[in-house]
């Protein structure tokens, strides 16, 4: 089947039910997208399909045909995406394993809503981080959004 990943077309010979995650990792060798639960619980495998965050561990590769797939490697060429920069500025990652998925979820949230509230963040950011970096993830998202402590409207839950 043909898959379009990060603006490149790949011809892959895989079973139609093979989860997109494993095509991305083991066939296309893009290792930034992570396996952690396999049942759509944790979000470490989050990619964008036509701009929507999707948990690729439970998404059959065949269903992604004809769609635009974006992985962590595709959101910028040089870690220059504002979300990536904010992640470094706020020193968000600890082990870092879940952070590709967290960043993909945050990028999608900010594309939909440039000034998310705490409630928006709570609703959109459902990925698990075992190291417990949630506070910094929230701070980094607010920073990208330009939300400040003074901007109470935007900050209010």
């Amino acid at each position: 089947m043909e898959l379009r990943v990060n603006n490149e077309i790949h011809e892959v010979d895989v079973e139609p039910e093979m989860p997109l995650l494993w095509v991305i990792r083991d066939i296309l060798n893009l290792k930034g997208t992570k396996f952690a639960c396999g049942i759509s619980q944790c979000g470490a495998c989050t990619v964008h399909i036509d701009g929507e965050p999707v948990r690729s561990c439970s998404y059959p590769a065949s269903a992604a045909q004809g769609k635009e797939i974006t992985t962590i490697e595709g959101i910028s060429l040089d870690a220059s995406h504002p979300v990536q920069q904010a992640w470094v500025k706020h020193q968000v990652p600890q082990c870092g394993y879940c952070q590709s998925g967290q960043i993909m979820a945050a990028v999608s949230l900010l594309e939909k809503k440039a000034r998310p509230t705490d409630a928006d963040i709570n609703a959109a950011m459902t990925n698990i981080c075992r190291c417990g970096t949630y506070k910094r993830i929230r701070d980094a998202i607010h920073d990208v959004a330009g939300n400040t402590a003074e901007n109470t409207l935007a900050y209010e839950a």
């Binding site: 962590i72 490697e73 870690a79 992640w87 470094v88 020193q91 968000v92 870092g96």
Partner: peptide, 26 residues
């Protein structure tokens, strides 16, 4: 700033699970 953070934001950090070698089986 932690030196291991930049590769954790662009997918380039290599964890055990990410190692890929010629002729590898799984």
């Amino acid at each position: 700033p932690r030196v291991d953070i930049p590769p954790s934001v662009d997918g380039s950090q290599v964890y055990g699970v990410d190692v890929e070698l010629p002729g590898m089986v799984y």
